[in-house]
Amino acid sequence: QRVQAKDIVGAIAGEAGIPGKLVGTIDIYDKYTFVEVPKENAKKVLDKMKNIKIKGNKINIEKANTRRK
């Protein structure tokens, strides 16, 4: 869908109002993407990003499961 990391950072910064430099690692796969944000900003990002589009694509956003060690 030609979405790049900079598009995701821009959307999060614009919608959630947090600086783009706070967005951590972004792993883009064919069917899903993982985006690392500070724990204290996670709820705000989830709430603000629910009904937006990135490059014309509606997104589904949810908290990732905890990584098993």
Rank of each mutant, 00 (worst) to 15 (best):
K31E: 05
G10Y: 11
E40M: 05
K58D: 15
Y29K: 09
K6P: 04
A13W: 01
I18E: 08
E36N: 06
K21D: 03
N41S: 12
K69I: 14
Y32C: 02
D7F: 01
G20K: 04
K55E: 13
G14M: 12
D7L: 06
I18A: 11
I12D: 07
V35K: 00
D27V: 00
I12Q: 06
T66W: 03
V3P: 01
K55D: 06
I26N: 01
R68F: 13
K58M: 09
K50V: 13
K58S: 14
Y32D: 01
F34Q: 01
V3L: 03
A42V: 08
Y32N: 04
Y29F: 07
A16H: 08
G17R: 14
L22T: 15
K39E: 15
I18D: 12
K6G: 02
K21T: 13
I12H: 08
P38N: 06
E15Q: 15
D30P: 02
P38S: 04
E36R: 14
A5C: 08
K44D: 12
N57K: 15
I61D: 06
M49E: 03
Y29E: 03
I18L: 14
F34K: 00
K6V: 08
K55M: 13
I8R: 03
T33S: 04
D27L: 00
N60V: 09
V3A: 00
T66N: 12
K53W: 07
Q4R: 14
K63A: 06
V45K: 05
G56N: 13
V37F: 09
N51G: 15
P19K: 14
G56A: 14
G56V: 13
I52F: 11
A13L: 06
N51L: 07
D47I: 09
E62W: 03
V9A: 06
R68M: 10
V45W: 08
K31Q: 08
I18W: 10
A13G: 12
V35G: 02
K21Q: 14
V9M: 09
D47K: 12
K69S: 14
I61Q: 06
V35Y: 02
I12T: 11
I28L: 04
T25V: 03
